[in-house]
Amino acid sequence: MKFVTVDDDPVFLEIMEGTLRNLGFDEIVSALSADQALNVATSGAFSPDCFLVDIQMPGKNGIDLVRELRAIETYRQTPIVMVTRMSDKAYIDDAFTAGATDYVTKPLDNIEFRSRIGMVQRLHDERKRSAMLLEQRGLDADGQFAADFSAPVLIPEMDNCVDFLALENYLLTLGRSRTVGYAAVSFNITNARFFHQACDYSVFLEMLADVSHAIFHNIKSHQFLLSYVGNGNIVVLLDNAGEVDTTELQYSLNHTLMEYESAYTMDRLPVPQVRAGRIMRSGVFSIGRPTSILYRALADVAPDAAHAANAGRLVA
C-alpha cells in the first residue's frame, strides 16, 4: 500500500513515516503542506492508496485538502485519515462532511494508530477484490462497472454523502457523550431493484442521486450525513432531528420525486418510490455503541440491510 502523509511539522512526518515502515509499508511520500500533497497526488508519478492528513496547517488546511482530493475522480473513495490535535466537534464534523474516512487525534498512540492503519489495509484489500470482480464481469453499455444490487455505493457528486464506514467512524470518533440527541432514519427505495436490473448502471446511479437530492430537500434544516448501503437502502444520520413525523417526511419525499416524473416518463421508467423508517435516537441511557442507531434505523426499513451493513461489506 502506498501512503501520502501530510503535516507541516517535519518531525511528526518522521514519526508517521517511521511507524508505517515499522508496520511493513515502505512506499511513503511525505508532504509539508496541502499544496505539496496535491502536487504529489496529481503528478502521476505516485498513486497513493491512502492519505494521512493533519488539519491545522499554514495556508490551505487539511479539511480543504480532503475536499479537493474528493473532487478528483481517482481519489473519490481513497481512504483519508485525519491525524490531528484538533478534537473539537466542529473539526470532526467538517472533516467527515468533507469526505474523511477516519479521524485520529494527537498525541499519536502507537497501538491505536496501528489499529486504524489495519482498518485502512482491510478496506484497501476489500476494494481491490471488488474491483477485480467487477472487471471480470465487464462494462455495461455506458462503460461503467456495475456493482451488485446489494453493494454499497458512494453516490457521485453528492455533498454530505459518505461511506457507511466513515459514518460509523464519525460516531465512534465523537463517542457516546457527544452523540446524545443524534438520530438516524433509513429509507428504502421500493423499486430500486427494477432500476438495477432493467437499466444501465449509470441510470441506477442517477436514480440514487435523485432520491438523495429529494432527501436533502426535505430534511435540509438539519445537519446530516447520508450513506447508500445497498439493496435500495439509504441511512441518514441527523445531529438533532427534533420532532420529525416520518409519515409526513415519506409523503413529502415522494411528492418531491414526482417532480421528476416527466424525465422518468420520457425514458419509460417509473418514478422511484421511497418508504421511510422510524427515527431512531441516541439517548443518555442508550445501550451499546454510538453506531447502534444506524443498525436500528436500517433494521426498521429492511432487517437484511442492517445485517449486511453490520457484516462490513464495503463500497464497490
Binding site: V11, F12, E14, I15, G18, T19, N22, N110, I111, R114, S115, G118, M119, R122, L123, F164, L165, E168, L172, R289, T291, A309, N310, A311, G312
Partner: peptide, 25 residues
C-alpha cells in the same frame, strides 16, 4: 463486523515499538 476495524491488531515485539519515537525524539 465493521466494528472489528477498531479492534487492536496483534502486538509486535517491544523493540520494534520503541524504534520510531527514539529516532524522531
Amino acid at each position: 463486523m465493521t466494528n472489528a476495524f477498531r479492534q487492536v491488531p496483534p502486538s509486535r515485539p517491544a523493540a520494534a515499538e520503541t524504534y520510531v519515537p527514539a529516532a524522531a525524539k
